[in-house]
Nucleic acid binder design. Structure first.
Lengths: 344, 344
DNA sequence: CTGAAAGCGCTAACAT
DNA sequence: ATGTTAGCGCTTTCAG
């Protein structure tokens, strides 16, 4: 037998299809006893409304695309969880897209909004997609999460990266470190720029002269952390601590330091950023900046729902971060120069 | 102005809407020059087909739900990537659902198939959902990935867990270990059962007597790895190596061993399962079983696409795994008992 | 090869 | 409060 439609239910309940629709969508618009008859018929037939027909008519898909920079980064998992939970509660679906910094893929996901596969876009990508710049006038509903694009005034949910980075560096300074290296994110993305600014601000606040040799560019990935440490050694730069703009890079840095016979934190202290799931299981447990990922996800989706419902309110939110001090940072060692010479 | 529809294009091209539809869907069914006129009109209007209207008519959603056991496990990321890539290529979308071992959530995702939000289900959950058992006769298209449910004959993509687990244990035996503990997955799920079977098979193959005190149940999560080690100590069980049924548990176990003053691999060797992204950045780098996650994801989606297209073929696939030997395993130490007494 | 016309299953507008 | 009617935008017969 074919799947029951609204007409099947209407016939069985002895009402019109419009009444069935109303009983299901706006129960208060129909008399209790009629509603009960309809509900009984729904149960009897096992009717499930066809969402496509409904969406076609109501011109909505009740789907949101979460477009992330790089799906391989476990950082996004907790965010997705928050987004998904808020979505399910509100009867929305979430498609997660992997931007891979690839314009073609980004275009693909944006086209999906035009093709009515999705109603809106939660962006967590490093730069504002070129394809969207072309049509700034008629953008689909967009919420920016974590990232920011200074020129645009779009609703956002984020953290204060400058302050968080400064806090991380303050922590190292308080431990006596003076030669603090920084592994940045991919410049000139705002995330990377802001964290670098926080690093510089903290140094300046303590009268420490900036040294460009201490700043190495990365891309948030594990391999970049390793490469950055290699580079610091190649340039013969002295340092006793590293502030990495992501945990993945911090982990890579620790791994490379160790390969060169240096101990963390005994020889070099390392601070990360993100507090990924395995940060506290790592050896040594990683000192890092914790972000309330789940809440960020939930809030981003909540804003999106407000946007789609054309509700007036909706405040941009800046979430608080906190420094989590674990085992990868310790007091500076004065005999570092000696140890350094031992390396192969 | 409202979004252009197929009628807008038809008018501009001076053809009927049916011809526009054909030019777009089955270009070979329309004369080259007509097609060119249509395409020009499409470009001129910026027309994007409304997927909802199309799907309503063609009774498909071109969407697949990937239902995973626990989204927090980074293990699934690479699988998702594989699924998503195959999906995008074939014009499909992927919704990732978090089962959380919660029947209500699972029900929610299954309802989505009935409501035509999705065409099929790729299952990566520990047990076959109760809600589906009730309707074994008219199941939606389902592909089982990684997991297996012995009673059901559904298309699957998996690895040989028994053989892989046996290989892991063989490796420990070859290093001289005789007292090898095993931290299982959640019993009685097939994944956990199979890996335990592989562990036992390898022991038996070398004439090592099974000892139930060496087997501790876990749930694949980090905390379970820690708890399992605590339990081994509480029961006063002797062991020189651990085979954990997941990397997350292996990491938890290492962390707990270290907290008790034991070194890995000097005092205890540890083998994991999965080869998660951070496995080789971990200290010590984790010896583990590598699974071709991306390919498993791709293949699962490929099978689903075949299923939906009602193509005849479609072979069940068993992917090869491989043992990756890193730093967390080493030769057994004979003075282990002595060290053991030093612990707090 | 192309056009006319009939829906897919639902909801919104307009009646009553 | 309920019913009637008219589509949403597309694909798919069926004719020609």
């Amino acid at each position: 037998m074919p799947a029951p439609t609204i007409a099947t239910v209407a016939e069985l309940a002895g009402v019109s299809t419009a009444t069935v629709s109303r009983a299901l969508q706006r129960p208060d618009k129909v008399q209790p006893q009629t509603r009960e008859r309809v509900m009984a018929a729904v149960r009897a037939t096992g009717f499930v409304p066809n969402s496509q027909a409904r969406n076609l008519r109501s011109r909505a898909s009740r789907t949101v695309i979460l477009l992330v920079r790089d799906i391989s980064n476990p950082f996004y998992l907790e965010i997705y969880k928050g987004v998904e939970e808020a979505a399910v509660e509100a009867g929305y679906k979430v498609l997660m897209g992997d931007a891979r910094n690839d314009d073609e893929r980004i275009q693909h996901y944006i086209d999906m909004v035009h093709a009515r596969h999705a109603d809106g876009l939660i962006l967590m990508v490093g730069r504002f997609p070129e394809v969207l710049k072309a049509e700034l006038g008629r953008l689909p509903p967009i919420v920016i999460a974590l990232e920011t694009f200074p020129d645009l005034s779009l609703p956002f949910v984020k953290i204060d990266n400058v302050a968080a980075a400064a806090e991380a560096v303050e922590h190292l300074v308080a431990l006596g470190h003076r030669r603090i290296a920084h592994i940045t994110g991919p410049m000139p993305e705002t995330l990377a720029v802001d964290r670098l600014a926080g690093y510089r601000r903290a140094l300046a606040a303590h009268g420490l002269a900036p040294d460009e040799a201490l700043v190495v560019q990365g891309d948030f990935g594990l391999a970049a952390g390793r490469a950055a440490v290699r580079r610091l050694f190649e340039t013969g730069t002295d340092f006793t601590a590293i502030f990495a703009a992501s945990d993945q890079m911090a982990v890579g840095a620790v791994s490379e330091l160790r390969a060169r016979g240096l101990a963390v934190p005994d020889d070099i202290s390392v601070v990360g950023f993100d507090d990924i799931v395995l940060a506290d299981a790592f050896e040594p447990p990683l000192t890092t900046i914790h972000q309330p990922r789940f809440d960020i996800g939930r809030q981003a989706m909540a804003r999106m729902i407000g946007l789609l419902a054309k509700e007036p309110g909706g405040e941009d939110v800046v979430f608080a971060t906190r420094l989590v001090v674990r085992g990868s940072t310790g007091p500076v060692k004065s005999d570092f120069q000696l140890k350094r010479r031992r390396r192969p």
